[in-house]
């Protein structure tokens, strides 16, 4: 490794995860009352998003999918503009035309979010090709799930990225669930890394519920992509604590498996460890909760005050 990765205060990681959780809890509550359209949340997967995004530089570009709140917020997205987008308001990142499912934020380097499972994988090589052809330093990080790994686009993407030597870090958030089907029913192999290996792409699996482990693994993987200018794959082994799409009663979920994962909640784990290590005290922990609640309240007020798009937005931005 050419340079040591920057030291990141784990309290920052905890705060980012708490913000993501609090933001998505607003979406969940709103979907029950009907105030906010239903969404796909990433509750339980916060460590995977925060750990990877904190390993990136400002020059790196992110492609993500329908479960994107963690990636966007960890990248510095304004929760008010995110919430406005989900609520179809004109101050959203996409002027209210995306809703929750395909939010891109070019200013943050979060490009080309697609909710077609696997499309992020089909678009990533082209983004990396631009980086390469223009000699830009940034690498490309593509977040997808184990469901997308079962699409043909996963295999076509990895083959082309290996063949054309494209600087992509593929991040599979293996959350055990592919919409309403458990990955065991859908995958011929236990791990997505098994498939990456067949394309000659270095790959490893990391505990996706431990933000410190994810960060370390992502720093190593991004360093490898930066140096080699070739693809790598990181599988974050995690769990989708909520259903596929809010609201969802999760009647199809194995409760023993779910309980075991909930006991390993990434936020509680991180907080408890910081307290045990003496890096966070109870007062600071309580202050963090207050701070985030206040940010969410501001975000909610901003989104509520944002107007719906004007009627002439119906056909604007179809063509360049």
């Amino acid at each position: 490794m050419a340079t040591q990765p920057p030291q990141i205060d784990p309290r920052q990681l905890l705060e980012q995860m708490m913000l993501i959780r609090a933001y998505e809890e607003i979406l969940i509550a709103g979907s029950v009352t009907g105030k906010i359209p239903g969404t796909c949340t990433s509750v339980g997967q916060e460590a995977a998003a925060v750990g990877v995004v904190n390993a990136l530089t400002a020059a790196d570009l992110i492609l993500t999918n329908h479960r994107s709140a963690g990636h966007l917020l960890a990248r510095g997205a304004d929760p008010g503009r995110l919430l406005a987008e989900v609520m179809g308001r004109s101050d959203g990142y996409c002027k209210g035309k995306s809703g929750s499912l395909h939010i891109s934020a070019k200013e943050l380097g979060v490009v080309l979010t697609s909710t077609i499972v696997g499309a992020e994988l089909s678009l990533a090589p082209g983004v990396a090709l631009s980086q390469t052809m223009f000699g830009r330093p940034g690498i490309v990080v593509c977040f997808f799930g184990d469901g997308a790994a079962c699409e043909g686009s996963f295999h076509e993407s990895l083959n082309l990225a290996a063949l054309w030597q494209l600087p992509i870090l593929y991040v599979c958030e293996n959350n055990q669930w592919q919409a309403f089907v458990h990955r065991r029913e859908a995958m011929s192999r236990e791990h997505v890394t098994d498939w990456a290996a067949s394309y000659g792409i270095p790959a490893r699996t990391v505990d996706g519920n431990d933000v410190v482990s994810v960060l370390a693994a992502a720093q190593a993987a991004t360093a490898q992509v930066r140096e080699s200018r070739r693809p790598c794959l990181l599988e974050t082994w995690t769990y989708r604590s909520r259903g596929h799409f809010e609201p969802d009663d999760q009647s199809y979920v194995d409760s023993a498996e779910r309980e075991a994962w909930l006991a390993r909640d990434p936020i509680a784990n991180c907080r408890d460890r910081l307290i045990a290590d003496g890096r966070l005290d109870a007062t600071e922990a309580a202050a963090l909760v207050e701070k985030i609640a206040s940010r969410i309240a501001v975000a909610q007020a901003f989104a509520d005050a944002s107007p719906f798009p004007a009627a002439d937005e119906l056909t604007r931005d179809v063509y360049a």
Binding site: L112, S122, L123, P125, G126, V127, S130, E156
Partner: peptide, 19 residues
């Protein structure tokens, strides 16, 4: 490769980022 999906997807990603 004979992979029309990834050829088109790569073109879309490249087009969005300057090519």
């Amino acid at each position: 490769p004979l992979s029309e999906g990834i050829i088109a997807g790569t073109a879309v990603g490249a087009a969005a980022t300057g090519l």
